[in-house]
Design a protein around this nucleic acid. Structure first.
Ligand SMILES: [Mn+2]
Ligand SMILES: [Mn+2]
Ligand SMILES: [Mn+2]
Ligand SMILES: [Mn+2]
Lengths: 221, 221
DNA sequence: ATATTTTTTTAGGCTAATCTAAATTTTAAA
DNA sequence: TTTAAAATTTAGATTAGCCTAAAAAAATAT
């Protein structure tokens, strides 16, 4: 019932790929996500199948079993709780925590996570606005949309990001933009889909199409 | 410059064995400490020697190099800081933290440890009274002695333990005895070297020879 | 419907870390 | 000082996780 570092990473990758497609996941997609080779993935899929974490049919991709889904969500829960710890308690910036959490998410101790969750005040979201699954593996789905999908003037709250790269997160920080801040869309450029927004009723900024497709918001009222 | 989980455990084991003997460490001692086989140890010693962490002569044991000593102390520093975190912040008991710290000590991030140290208020001792090496790998040596070595009536402060087993630590907790508490030795039994002590001026207890050799104290005045 | 391209699997090999059994060296005993 | 015992190393295998190259299957284009 305890899996290796590597096995957990495969399960997490398969879960995340399944969040988008939701049909069976291909060997090549997993290889791309984990920066490894298709042959290596095939080897591992056999092992994960033996352990009943996935259902696997040669040449036809994989799906997580219920056991696999639970395992993935437990790892994601740990990752996100540790990220909260790193930002809230140790004062890391939100663009610095992912790689450390990639290591911490593989520490095995249910009691540790129970107590960490308690210590952090049972947070519901991580520093990037991603929801934290509960002990049972239940994760409420986000009611946020990409700002590019809102596609309408008005006021919004920044609730999350799609792109988690350091470069993007730093860019947002440089704009003095953080989770919970207000974005008022004042104009949308029809030619290139760039947005003119007012941040926290203070400073106006231009956000490119690429930027507005990578931030999640909720409309105010 | 970053070593594997396994390599770090070997280096730590060699360091700890060196703390007692301080002549060259034998293959068999390392095998015993790590619950592995002598042949396995020999294999690893060659690898550690290649990496300049130890000096190794066939059939004549090993010693840590300066690089090896630094590596060991860095791992010990991480272990002890995490133990402080688990007890002080997450409210684990002192007998519950070792196994979790065994995992956490292998997380690689200098910045994480710097910030954790800061967060904990730069503690000098772990929950078992063991000193925490600083960033440079400097660890002040304990001025404490085993209560059995004091061997004299009088008042003492409990400053640490030799045996770190759950069983022993639980036993001390059951006696309402924790670090910093006062022990007044009222009588020493000449026959079996058991001690009659008063704990915190409140309740008298009998401590066996095995117990008094496993606790560290400092005499008061 | 057949040929070409893409995807996936198999075959065979590598390294780190482990093991058991056998050989060798050192140490201790007679 | 020879011999027996103990410690250590070598030899040979195993497993997890990874790789490249070749074969096979599936998807796509003609
Ligand atoms: Mn992350
Ligand atoms: Mn995150
Ligand atoms: Mn410990
Ligand atoms: Mn300790």
């Amino acid at each position: 019932m305890a899996f290796s570092f590597t096995e957990e990473n495969y399960i997490k990758a398969i879960y995340k790929l399944g969040e988008m497609h939701h049909d069976a996941i291909s060997t090549n997609d997993i290889a791309a996500k984990l920066a490894t080779r298709a042959a290596t993935v095939t080897d591992m899929l056999k092992r994960l199948s033996d352990k009943k974490l996935i259902t696997y049919q040669r040449y036809h991709g994989v799906k997580l079993t219920e056991k696999g889904r639970k395992t993935a969500l437990a790892v994601i829960r740990k990752h996100r709780l540790w990220e909260v710890f790193l930002v809230e308690k140790l004062k890391f910036r939100w663009d610095e925590v992912h790689d450390i959490a990639e290591q911490l998410e593989h520490i095995h101790s249910d009691e540790l996570i129970r107590k960490l969750d308690q210590f952090l005040g049972k947070p519901k979201f991580d520093p990037h606005g991603d929801p934290i699954p509960d002990e049972k593996g239940v994760m409420r789905l986000s009611s946020s949309t990409r700002l590019s999908d809102a596609n309408k003037k008005g006021r919004y709250i920044l609730t999350g990001v799609i792109d988690h790269s350091t470069l993007f997160l730093r860019y947002l920080s440089d704009l003095k933009l953080k989770l919970g801040d207000e974005l008022e869309v004042q104009a949308i450029n029809e030619y290139d889909q760039s947005y003119k927004v007012m941040i926290n009723k203070k400073h106006p900024e231009f956000l490119s199409k690429q930027v507005v497709t990578n931030i999640l918001v909720q409309a105010i009222k």
